[in-house]
Amino acid sequence: MSASRAETLEQLARLCRNGREGPPPRVEPSGSASLDAVLPGGGWQSGTIVELMPVSDGIGELRLLMPALAKITQSERHVAMIAPPYIPFAPALLRHGLRLEHFWIIRAQSAADILWSAEQTLRCKSFGAVLAWPSAIRDREVRRLQLAAEAGSSIGFVYRPPSAAHESSPAAVRLRLQADAVGQLNVDIVKCRGARAGMSLAVGGLESAGRQRLTANT
C-alpha cells in the first residue's frame, strides 16, 4: 500500500470516527503565528503525533514547544518527557512558565520500554503532551502511538535524528529543525496534513530571554 493511499484510508477512518465521537480535538497554539498558519487545526492538535528532527542539540528544539507545554501544565494537564537526552533543567522550565507539579520525567532505557511508556502516557487522559526520544521507531510503532494519542486526546512529540527526514512515516506532522548562524530557528515542513511539504518557516517570537540577550550582545 502506497503511503498516500494509506494516508487517505487513515483520513477516511478518522472521518468515520469523527461522526460518532464527541469532542473536537483540542488545539494548543504553538506561540508562532507563521507556524500556526500551516499546522493542521491552527496549532499543535491533540490526537496527533508530531515528529521533530533537529539537526543538532541546542538550536531551539525544546523552546519550540515551551509555550504549548506551559499552557498544558497551567490547565492542570500533565506533560511527560520520556528518555530525554539531557536533564530538563528545572530553573529554565520554570522561567518558561511550566508548572513543575505537572511535569514528569520517565527514564526508560530500552527502545521497547521507551515506546511502551510513551504509549501508556499518551493513552492516559491526564497527560496533555508527551515528548519522547526513542532510540529507534518503526512505522507500526508510530501508528500505535497515534492510536494512543487519539484515545487519550494528547499530543505526542517524537524526537528523531535528522536522517529520519528521508524516510516515510505515518506521523501527521513531520518537521525538520535547523538554525542559522545567528540562532534563528527554521522549521522545514517535511510533511504536514493540509500543508505543502518542502516549505520552510523562520519561527520567531519563541526566543527565550537567553537568546534575546545573545542577540543583544552580538
Binding site: 522550565l93 511535569f103 527514564r107 501508556q120
Partner: peptide
C-alpha cells in the same frame, strides 16, 4: 498510569523535577 510505568521500569526511573 504512573504505577504501571514504575512497576515496569523501577521506582527511580519516574520522577518530577524541582528547582
Amino acid at each position: 498510569t504512573l504505577d504501571r510505568i514504575v512497576a515496569r521500569l523501577g521506582e527511580n526511573q519516574v520522577h518530577g523535577v524541582k528547582a
